[in-house]
Design a protein around this nucleic acid. Structure first.
Lengths: 148, 148
DNA sequence: GGACTATTTAGAATAGTTCTAAATCTTGAC
DNA sequence: GTCAAGATTTAGAACTATTCTAAATAGTCC
């Protein structure tokens, strides 16, 4: 279980985590993190850029990538890659999977996951398993109805 | 279980499957498929291009993408996307997972998987699950030794 | 054999990401 | 407080991966 509560002051946590990875808390990193927490729709870097820009017009694309990388590095954000196309970002660090709609491309958080213990994966000798990423594919409710 | 045997004449199968999706068997598609079966290292489109080109110098990059898409469409090849960067391709259609080495970036097939039944995933109402993709992350034997 | 359609080709175009160099900001030492 | 060192941001160029376009070619069906 994750100890992070949704009401916890994010920036304090953010500051700590950044510091822990030898990174500084800057207004830009805070803003990018804010954008991700504001709308949990797994935006692409470009979408993050546009949303951040609306509140911080000076911010540049390179900075958004830099901030996203910093946030991923310090464990505040996950990078979600599905199919070809732009990488998406998710600020929900609770253990969860992603459901990917093959029809419309939307990504949904699914609060259930397969842990390393549950999976009982038998790896060939020498491999060191650290993390299991589970991506679910299918149709989201909207597209399921339409395809009927 | 998959009924495909490793010794089955691939091109016959390929022809059938392409036809089934309304696609033709062409020398280029055969070559691309060949390249993928020859070395199971999950090459990128660019690597496929270079390998195919060595045997079929006329082939173009656009054709490689076209062929890969055709092969994916007819179920002869899987598209593997991990992290940012080029998409990789895998001709092993047996149910299996991919182990991704966080250190060197290599991809390995792991002949074990979590089926929809096993996983017992509880999706919110309306979602229609078709496929579970499991990606394992960690260190490959080589990198595990080095990091010790 | 001719018409129709699918496929391939080269190269341009686009999208996504990374790099670069200069400017700015922080931090810690004095 | 001031300065130096290092981190971060910025704009824009560069690069990489992928898709698009139009013309040429190859199959397929009648």
């Amino acid at each position: 279980m994750n100890t992070a509560s949704p009401k916890a002051p994010a920036s304090t946590d953010l500051n700590e985590r950044l510091a822990h990875s030898g990174l500084r808390l800057t207004p830009q990193r805070q803003q990018v993190h804010e954008v991700l927490r504001e709308k949990l729709d797994h935006p692409t870097a470009d979408q993050v850029f546009m949303r951040a820009k609306s509140k911080m017009p000076e911010i540049s694309m390179a900075t958004v990538y830099n901030c996203l990388d910093a946030l991923v590095q310090c464990g505040m954000v996950r990078q979600v890659t599905l199919d070809r196309g732009a990488t998406r970002y998710c600020p929900n660090m609770q253990d969860h999977s992603h459901f990917y709609c093959d029809e419309c491309g939307s990504v949904f958080d699914i609060l259930q996951t397969i842990s390393i213990a549950d999976a009982d994966i038998k790896l060939p000798r020498g491999f060191r398993l650290k993390l299991i990423e589970t991506n679910l594919h299918g149709l989201c409710p909207d597209c399921a109805v339409k395809s009927k």
